[in-house]
């Protein structure tokens, strides 16, 4: 191994009785990556996250976090998480909740101030948690997660139940934070979040990874991209284009040609170097369409 991975899942299976929530996931995440774990509800995202956090044990396979067992990585503060909901006590104040976290991690009082500031809740430190809005509670969870200054931060559906501005503020804070080089994994079923904030998107469905790459790659993988170009006499090129590897369909409309392909780079290279094509453009479908394409057989299967 040339580099120590932030997270390494190797053939991980998680069964709950007869239900297989995670069905053979292998995944390596490098330090510094911002990874979206994207998939519909019940895809196995939360089960996967739970195993990375040592909250549950895989039925098969192994999970390592910075080369350590997850429980150990959690105890050392290498990894922390912002969970979807719950996990707060109503009769603690915001400040006390963070202080308790500091006490548990053995971190000094200044650290409490620092993370309250960072999460933007220093002004409501004396407010009871039960009196905080959903967005404020989520920022409190974020502050708690930041407290041990983790190498890896995991966010499980972090913006569920937030309004648009709350969501925006939350992601700005995360974005700001990721700049310091922290590894971030977030589970989401909001496509636009994965598209906007992740360097890498891992598509999960029915407990398996069905696609893994940059948002752009995943979009292309799912539905391909379309190359459109102006090509006088396009009909003559139709057969040659159709014969190329990875080409799904070719449409000729007068002097323009539309090629749907998995590898549009090859198609573009061919068009520009071997033909008289001009005004070439490559159009990706958005992640939403990719998402539907990847998950659509759920209906037919």
């Amino acid at each position: 191994m040339t580099e120590r991975m932030a997270v390494e899942l190797d053939g991980v299976v998680k069964r709950f009785g007869a239900v297989t929530a995670v069905d053979g996931v292998s995944l390596a995440i490098r330090p510094g990556e911002v990874v979206a774990l994207l998939g519909p509800n019940g895809a196995g995202k939360t089960s996967t996250v739970d195993m990375v956090l040592g909250l549950s044990e895989p039925s098969q396979g192994s999970v390592r976090v910075y080369g350590r067992a997850p429980r150990e990585a959690v105890a050392l503060g290498l990894v922390s998480a912002v969970m979807q909901s719950g996990g707060l006590l109503k009769d603690y104040t915001v400040g006390e909740t963070v202080r308790l976290t500091a006490v548990l991690f053995g971190r000094p009082r200044e650290r409490v101030e620092a993370v309250l500031e960072r999460a933007g809740i220093a002004d409501i430190r004396d407010r009871l948690v039960g009196k905080c809005s959903g967005g404020q509670q989520q920022r409190l969870r974020f502050a708690m997660a930041l407290l041990p200054d983790p190498e890896l931060l995991i966010l499980d559906e972090p913006t569920t139940g937030m309004d648009v501005s709350g969501r925006h503020d939350f992601w700005s804070a995360i974005r700001e934070d990721a700049r310091s080089g922290r590894t971030v994994i977030f589970a989401t079923h909001y496509l636009e979040e994965a598209d906007a904030y992740a360097d890498r998107v891992v598509f999960v469905r029915r407990g398996r990874v069905v696609a893994d790459g940059t948002a752009a790659e995943v979009k292309a993988l799912a539905s391909g991209r379309t190359v459109r170009a102006t090509l006088p006499g396009a009909v003559e090129q139709e057969a040659a284009l159709r014969a190329m590897a990875g080409v799904d369909s070719v449409e000729v409309r007068g002097d323009s040609v539309l090629v749907h392909a998995k590898d549009t780079d090859e198609v573009a290279r061919y068009l520009l170097t071997r033909t008289a094509a001009r005004d070439l453009e490559i159009v990706a479908r958005n992640l939403e369409q990719a998402f539907i394409a990847l998950t659509s057989d759920e209906v037919t299967a």
């Binding site: 909250l55 959690v74 105890a75 719950g86 996990g87 006590l89 976290t101 548990l104 708690m144």
Partner: peptide, 16 residues
């Protein structure tokens, strides 16, 4: 009460 609120689970994300 702490289990119902998910606090016990939160505590498992600490060295406690």
């Amino acid at each position: 009460v702490e289990r119902a609120a998910g606090w016990s689970r939160q505590l498992r994300l600490t060295p406690l």
